[in-house]
Design a protein around this nucleic acid. Structure first.
Lengths: 358, 358
DNA sequence: ATGTAGTGTGAGACCGGTCTCAATTCGGAG
DNA sequence: CTCCGAATTGAGACCGGTCTCACACTACAT
């Protein structure tokens, strides 16, 4: 009735009748050991079903063989694939992955980081929730622990980063809508802002959101659309019903937009559902374009035009950059911006009633 | 130019001019310490920016505060939500989560388990890929480490389990299709089998797959459908194109099925795409029902009828069961079977050409 | 004054590995 | 036959926490 104490090197050493040091050399595969002794130790290890304690190993080596990931929302397919990609790459290089979810809350992000650092991860990949509040990220950098930002750059933080050309993509997609004849455009993004109405870019604390809105506005300005800021809808976070309410409000406005660009596939999904519920047709009543080529966008009638982001590649890149640094490389901070691809499907048409500009 | 050695209790103790033991008591929040000393130590800790080393802590306490998850495929939304749910619940109880992906390969599953055990996780939640090859799971049980099986029960392994009523759900869905007039049914599942044609249930090494096929066949037999086994399509794993080819083959058969039950939303997606490519209409040409209420199933035209599985609840349940055991409870193995819900949408209709039975 | 709890503190063992360094053995050169 | 160096091996420190135990000191009853 032993309390099932796990087998240790000392146990193996005793059974193989060698010293703990020698057994450790065989089991850890480092020092020189004679073949005869090696076999004896291996036999003893097998007989006792020895399993090395990685914790103890990490303690003395200082390396944990683990990388930490902090994402905004694993439930979002975008992050789901990113996590998959990062862990595939990590495993390929012999690393494990600890996952934490921030729910897009900075406080949760801080807590997650604290835990991961406590576990002495060898490096971190983070999707920062708020680019105004980055003291905790600076701490990471100061402690010399490799860090890669994912999907969202942060100005003034000299650290590796992987993202997409958000501004250009939004610009191009908006131009495409304007070319189709639209003058009343909306950009809908998931963001908890105070106040919930768009006032200016200083309000946007998520860098990718800011870049996309920049692109949207730039395209509007370039084509002479007036007051495009009024079309920006900050639809709130992932909390229940919040986004739905914002979308409902947008669609039932006195002069609703004739085309919508959605910042992610979840918001686009809400828009699609709301339209369906109201009997609005795409693209006759409203044109729709979304960031991210989510599964569902290709099977609707009509399918939705999207800005495809190479998520899997982004994850791989991020992991590669991180692991290179963990392995000792220390070049200056690299910014890796991957191109997006516009996939035109059937969701863009001419606006219902053409309105002459001014 | 220090090599950035992290601050330890000893450092804090030295600065606060107390013994290492006393500093540890304050920092670890356990032993009795006078208020005056406590303040001094806390001040020193703050000044030095002390961060406890969880690894060292785990080593002496024997608890890591971490639970390990091994899922088949994180990219699958079903597992994505499960992971989200499990980590939410874990964090609520003060645990962290280490994630590993088996890609539905037993060998990868074994490796993942080895690593997680090496990291001394306090407990494990596993989606076993193969119920014939469970020696490694028995090892876990033998070592007294809490284990919960997720989504897939395994006979003869006395361990907690959370799953859905797969057999009943498949039975009911099949009955619904038969009631609509179908006699030529197909059940398509993601499974790498040797040979790739269904021969008998002994071939099915994933328990949920087996249960669902049992239910399908039982409903067919109960309604006098002949040779329903011929409708079972083992469409292969997630490897590229494999499933697509199987589905193509199924649809282009001489006498294609008039109704299909899909074992998961990924396979159903392949079927949907393949049908779309061939111009087949739902439900006029083919009725379709899928397991799991994936996002896309509700926005197609027509929307797809599904067997909704309470994934989030499953994850929460699994985590709760596990944590209870980690916290010392040790009741006999519990099997927690959650009910599914049939969501009827527009994808079921009468078969195109009614065929008289025999 | 002496006994007796009770409280706060320090010294040091311990967890299970890694790793340094000294000791031992053995072969071949001188 | 002796000496040197290479190859193995063992003893024990160390990583950074936790935790046991002994000790000092105070407070109060006897």
């Amino acid at each position: 009735m032993s309390p099932f104490r796990p087998v240790t090197v000392a146990d193996v050493a005793r059974r193989a009748e060698v010293s703990k040091a020698t057994a450790a050399r065989v089991l850890g595969g480092y020092g020189p050991v004679s073949d005869e002794v090696k076999l004896r130790v291996q036999a003893a290890a097998k007989a006792l079903d020895y399993r090395p304690n990685e914790l103890a190993r990490s303690m003395s080596t200082g390396k944990s063989g683990t990388i930490g990931i902090v994402v905004g929302d694993i439930e979002n397919a975008f992050f789901g694939i990113a996590v998959r990609s990062i862990s595939d790459t990590a495993h390929r290089h012999g690393f494990n992955v600890i996952l934490a979810n921030s729910g897009e809350e900075v406080e949760a992000e801080k807590a997650a980081l604290k835990v991961l650092v406590g576990k002495r991860v060898d490096g971190l990949i983070v999707t920062p929730a708020d680019n105004r509040n980055i003291a905790h990220l600076r701490d990471i950098v100061r402690s010399r622990r490799p860090l890669v930002l994912f999907d969202r750059p942060i100005d003034g933080l000299a650290v590796d980063m992987v993202a997409t050309d958000d501004r250009d993509a939004a610009f191009a997609a908006t131009m495409r809508l304007v070319e189709a004849g639209h003058r009343r455009l909306a950009y809908v993004t998931a963001l908890n802002a105070e106040p919930p109405i768009f006032i200016g870019p200083e309000q946007l604390y998520t860098s990718s959101v800011k870049a996309r809105i920049d692109g949207f506005l730039a395209a509007c300005h370039a084509t002479g659309i007036e007051e495009p800021e009024r079309g920006i809808c900050l639809a709130g976070g992932t909390a229940t019903g919040q986004q739905r309410a914002s979308v409902e409000q947008l669609l039932s406005a006195a002069e609703p937009p004739t085309a919508i660009l959605a910042s992610d596939s979840l918001v686009a999904f809400e828009i699609f559902k709301a339209m369906q519920a109201r009997g609005l047709r795409i693209p006759e009543d409203l044109s729709l374009v979304s960031f991210y080529d989510a599964e569902w966008t290709s099977v609707t009638t009509p399918p939705i035009s999207v800005i495809d982001q190479p998520v899997y590649d982004m994850g791989t890149q991020a992991a590669e950059l991180l692991i290179a640094r963990i392995n000792g490389e220390s070049p200056p901070a690299r910014h890796c911006v991957l191109p997006t691809r516009f996939i035109e499907r059937g969701s863009i048409g001419a606006p219902r009633r053409t309105m002459a500009a001014s």
